[in-house]
């Protein structure tokens, strides 16, 4: 068994207008997890709990073997954290920040830092206040990477980056993984980035984890089936149908438990399978969120309307 770098079990946190509900996460060492959710889904709260910045009400959090938040000082020595709201000193230069971080973290790797300066096209003499958004993100990432942390925690590292900067950042993240003892947890709204570099994918919506799996399994399980039915034939009953679209004769099924044997099942039921389409992570995410939301509406409305 690969050890886990991040392990959440039954973590909950209640706020007046939002709650994180029973979060389970398991991120094996040496892999990348992409954490996907809409705005306000609970990504940042989860990350703050992971970092020990917010204390969970219930549940256990272990990061690099350290229980959080109790052991956060020890854990943070080995975590590199980059988030939007991390403030660099506007009046200071990037070189000053590099010296500062170096004075705190003895594992600081100056050669790697110099390399990153070149690859990210950053100038150490430049003051933070003169940097663009993309340059700030790259500067913050450089400061985290050159510490060579065992775990990188990145809150939306690619949001607002231009395509070239995004490409540079993703390449640098992958390069980290050359070393199989290092692990990355990153949140994103960009499913394309997540689909490309993640080993593990977790979807969060409205404070709950709605799906979490190895990416290959994830992509394999979801398919769109385009069928053609003879007149007056009912739709074959298939497991894992999340959504039925299209028309009566030409239905399109979205399925989250696809198995190649389903094709024969459809044909036996008189339905011709016209195509089996793979879905992008974005399509899977949207279908997943919508079906759960519809389902939760249906479930929560029925008992109430009965009792009312």
């Amino acid at each position: 068994m690969t050890p886990l770098s991040v392990h959440f079990t039954g973590v909950s946190k209640r706020y007046p207008h939002f709650s994180l509900d029973n979060i389970d996460l398991a991120l094996p060492t040496g892999s990348i997890m992409g954490f996907v959710g809409a705005n306000g889904a609970g990504k940042s709260t989860t990350i703050r709990i992971l970092m020990g910045l917010v204390h969970q009400d219930t549940g256990a959090v272990e990061v690099l073997g350290h229980p959080m938040p109790d052991d956060q000082a020890a854990a943070k020595r080995d975590i590199g954290f980059v988030s939007e709201d991390m403030r660099l000193y506007e009046a200071a230069t990037l070189a000053w920040h590099m010296k500062f971080i170096q004075s705190i973290f003895p594992r600081w790797d100056q050669r790697y830092a110099d390399n990153l300066l070149r690859r990210f096209d950053l100038k150490p003499q430049q003051k933070i206040k003169g940097l663009s958004h993309g340059q700030r993100v790259k500067a913050a990432l450089l400061l985290a990477l050159a510490r060579r942390p065992r775990l990188l925690v990145l809150d939306e590292p690619t949001t607002g980056l231009d395509p070239v900067a995004r490409h540079e950042v993703l390449a640098e993240l992958m390069a980290v993984l050359t070393d199989e003892d290092r692990t990355i947890f990153f949140s994103s709204q960009n499913t394309l980035d997540v689909e490309q570099i993640s080993d593990q994918i977790t979807f969060i919506d409205r404070g709950r984890i709605i799906d979490s799996a190895n990416k290959e399994i994830f992509l394999d399980r979801w398919r769109r089936l385009r069928l053609m039915l003879p007149p007056d034939r009912p739709l074959p009953r298939l497991p894992g149908v999340v959504e039925i679209g299209g028309s009566t004769r030409l239905p399109v099924l979205t399925i989250n438990q696809f198995d190649p044997a389903m094709v024969a099942l459809c044909q036996d039921a008189g339905a011709a399978v016209q195509s089996i389409d793979a879905m992008t992570l974005e399509e899977i995410f949207i279908a997943n969120v919508q079906s759960r939301r519809d389902h939760s509406v249906a479930v929560s409305e029925t008992p109430e309307s009965v009792t009312a």
Partner: peptide, 10 residues
């Protein structure tokens, strides 16, 4: 994986 910038698992 690193050269192609795709996940190890892929």
């Amino acid at each position: 994986a690193v050269a192609l910038r795709v996940s190890v698992i892929t």
